[in-house]
Design a protein around this nucleic acid. Sequence first.
DNA 1: CGAAAGGTTGAAAAGCGTCAAGTTGCGTGG
DNA 2: CCACGCAACTTGACGCTTTTCAACCTTTCG
Lengths: 223, 223
Amino acid sequence: MAADNLLSQKQQAELRGIAVAVEYEHEGTVIFSEGEDARFVYLVADGVIRIGRTSDGGRRQILAFMLPGDLLGLPDAGSYVNSADVVCPSVLYRIPWAKLRDLMTREPSLQHNFLVKVAHDFREAQRRIVMLGQQNTYQRLASFLLDFIQHPAFFDKADRCLTLPLSRFDMADYLGTAPETVARGFLRLERDALVRRVTSRIVEIIDVDGLRRLQMRKRRAET
Amino acid sequence: MAADNLLSQKQQAELRGIAVAVEYEHEGTVIFSEGEDARFVYLVADGVIRIGRTSDGGRRQILAFMLPGDLLGLPDAGSYVNSADVVCPSVLYRIPWAKLRDLMTREPSLQHNFLVKVAHDFREAQRRIVMLGQQNTYQRLASFLLDFIQHPAFFDKADRCLTLPLSRFDMADYLGTAPETVARGFLRLERDALVRRVTSRIVEIIDVDGLRRLQMRKRRAET
DNA sequence: CGAAAGGTTGAAAAGCGTCAAGTTGCGTGG
DNA sequence: CCACGCAACTTGACGCTTTTCAACCTTTCG
C-alpha cells in the first residue's frame, strides 16, 4: 500500500490521452473479477480498492488495498488473476492495455515507470509474506494499524484518530484470520492501553511505539 | 518458483556480453544480504537459491526458492531488501545493474522481458499470501509438495519419488511454521497414505489428487 | 419500528509452538 | 573399519493461540 506517482509532464499528457476516468459510487462495486479477459489497467485517482482472490474453498483473501497512485489489473496470460472492488466511492483511470502497450514501446521511460510500480507492489507483497509467516494475529493487527496511520487520508495527527474504511470482515480477510479474532485483538490492544476504540471504525492510537514493539516480539511472547 | 526464459538470440548475446558466470560451491554461501549496496542482478543458471528476510526478532522468513531461469537481486532505493544464499552448489550469471540499465534503455524489448519476469514473481508472491493467509500448516505442506513435483529436476515421475533439496528448517521457514510441525505434517501425510517417507529428504508421492483435495479444504476440517 | 447486517463476547475444542527426550544418519578421527 | 560426536530429524507432552459456534448487542436503513 503506497501512493507515489512520478511521471513526467509529457508522460502524464500521453497517458491522459488514452485514459478514461470512471467513477464507482457504491461500496462493493466490482471493477473486475479473476478469470475475466484483461482489457484494461486501472490507476487509482481517488478512493480505496480491495484486491483479492477467492480460493476454491470459497474463502476470500484480500491481497492488498490500493490507494490513489496505485496501479491495478495486471493480467496473466490475458486474464485477470485477482478481483477488484471498491471499498468506498472511488475514481479510477481506465487505460486500455493495447494502447498502453503501444505507448510503452514508443516511450521506454514510461515502461520503466511501470516497472518501478510493479517492483514496488512486489516488495509490498513480500512484506505481507513476512507478516503472515511470522506474526501472530495480534501482531498482524498492530502492523495493519501502523501501515494505515502512515496515510493522512485516514489518520488525523491532531487527535490521533484513525478512521478505518474497512469492516471487521475485510480486516479479517486481509490479515488471514476471523472477524472475531480481529475484535478480540482490538479488545486486547485497548486493555494494553495501545489504542482506544471510539467506534468500531474509529480508533484513537495511544501508543505508536508500543505497537512497534509488539511487531518485533516473538510470535509467542514469554511475558 | 518457476523457470521460463524467453529471450531472443540477440538479447541473449547482448546479455552474455555483460554477464559473468559465478559458481557457488558450498551450501549456505551468501550471494547478497539485505541492506547491502545493490550492484548486481543475478540470473540463476543452475542450482537452487534461497531468498529470505530476517526480521528484527531474528527469525528468518524464506520468501521464495529460485530455480534456473529465475531472476534475483531487485534493489529498493539502491539496496537489496532480501538476502540470498545457495541451497546447493549453484551457478549464477552476475549482471551489473548499471550496464543492464543502459542495455534496457537501448533495447526496450529486453526491458519488457524484465518486466514480465518481475510480474511473474509478483503473482507468485500473491499465491504465497493466499497460502499463508488461508491454509493451515498441514495444507501448506501439501501445497509445497505439489509445487515441487512440477519440477522434473526434483521429481522422478517413474518411481514417484520427490528429492527435496531442503532441510526441515528451510521448509519450516518457508511455510511460516516450526520444523517440528513440518515433521508432524509428514507423519500425518504418511498416516493418511498420501506420501511415504523414504528418507527425510526423499518422499514417495502416493496420492497427488489427495494432496490437491487437501489444499481446498477449510482450514479446520470437519472430518 | 423492525429487520438485517455488522460487531462483540463467551465457551469449547482444535491447531500449533515450544521444550524436552529420543532416534537416525553421517563424517571424522582413532 | 569402528566408534564417536554432531547435526538433523522425529515424537511426545503441555499450554498458549486461534477457530468455530452461538448468543447477544449495536447501528443502519427501509
